[in-house]
Simulated assay, not measured.
Amino acid sequence: MLWSCQSGAEKTVEASTMLPYYNEPTFTPLFLSAPEEIEAGITHKISPFKLLNQDSLLLDQHWIEGKIHVASFIFTTCGSICPTMVQQMQSVSKAFEKDDRVGLLSFSVTPWYDTPAVMQAFKKSYEISDPNWHFLTGKQSEIYQLARQAYFAEEDIGYSRDSTDFLHTEHLILVDADKRIRGIYNGTLALDVQQLIADIHCLRKTL
């Protein structure tokens, strides 16, 4: 499911036409280039949200407007895929740490435990200082609905699940400055994450 706007040593060209759009949880790639085609054909965007970050500051959808961002869904007590995902996300953070046009959002899937203080300690334990990487917590129902129906985090398998079904996914979701989904990657695989970094570079050329 990975597509590249780079080929060997070729320069990036028209990132908006080379990276697909994803309008449904099946993650069927749609390659569109004309603005009118995109406007008419890509109706899905990340929906509004209001959550607290690790500093107990309210973060909402306005933070991602006009900005490329990557979403992940983790929990601080996870002993399986989450530590690897955070470590891989650090590669993304380091690649764009001085670029406020690129942000990272890590949503807690156990918000009843992951308070802002817990998330802050978690961030510090990984020595993450990137101001554009937020660890978010809030109501479970809001986070789960956002993950499944806005980010398609579990693809079509999880789209219709409700908040009583535990959410656990290795996916990283790439969203462009117009809040449209442009990629899905396995956050435990270094190769996938390197592709994610390359795709972010592509999208940056459209800003």
Rank of each mutant, 00 (worst) to 15 (best):
110 T>C: 08
111 P>E: 08
118 V>P: 09
133 W>V: 00
46 I>K: 03
148 R>K: 04
41 G>A: 11
35 P>R: 10
52 L>K: 11
65 E>F: 01
8 G>Y: 01
112 W>P: 00
205 K>R: 12
153 A>D: 02
146 L>Y: 15
86 V>E: 12
111 P>K: 04
171 H>K: 12
159 Y>Q: 14
46 I>V: 15
100 D>S: 14
92 V>I: 15
98 K>Q: 15
184 I>P: 03
27 F>H: 10
140 Q>P: 05
131 P>I: 06
189 L>I: 13
205 K>Y: 02
14 E>I: 00
46 I>A: 06
13 V>Y: 00
53 N>L: 08
17 T>L: 08
20 P>T: 02
127 E>A: 14
152 F>D: 07
75 F>I: 12
190 A>L: 12
130 D>F: 15
92 V>Y: 12
4 S>W: 11
102 V>T: 05
185 Y>S: 00
76 T>Y: 08
26 T>G: 08
190 A>R: 10
85 M>K: 02
44 H>M: 04
181 I>R: 00
199 D>E: 09
7 S>W: 06
189 L>G: 03
172 L>N: 05
110 T>A: 10
177 A>W: 01
163 S>A: 13
160 S>C: 03
97 E>A: 13
186 N>I: 05
101 R>A: 02
96 F>V: 08
171 H>M: 12
47 S>H: 07
170 E>H: 14
27 F>G: 02
111 P>M: 07
87 Q>C: 05
29 P>W: 09
80 S>D: 15
175 V>W: 02
71 A>G: 12
104 L>G: 06
90 Q>D: 13
42 I>L: 05
12 T>C: 03
36 E>N: 07
123 K>Y: 04
144 Y>L: 04
152 F>P: 10
174 L>P: 04
185 Y>I: 00
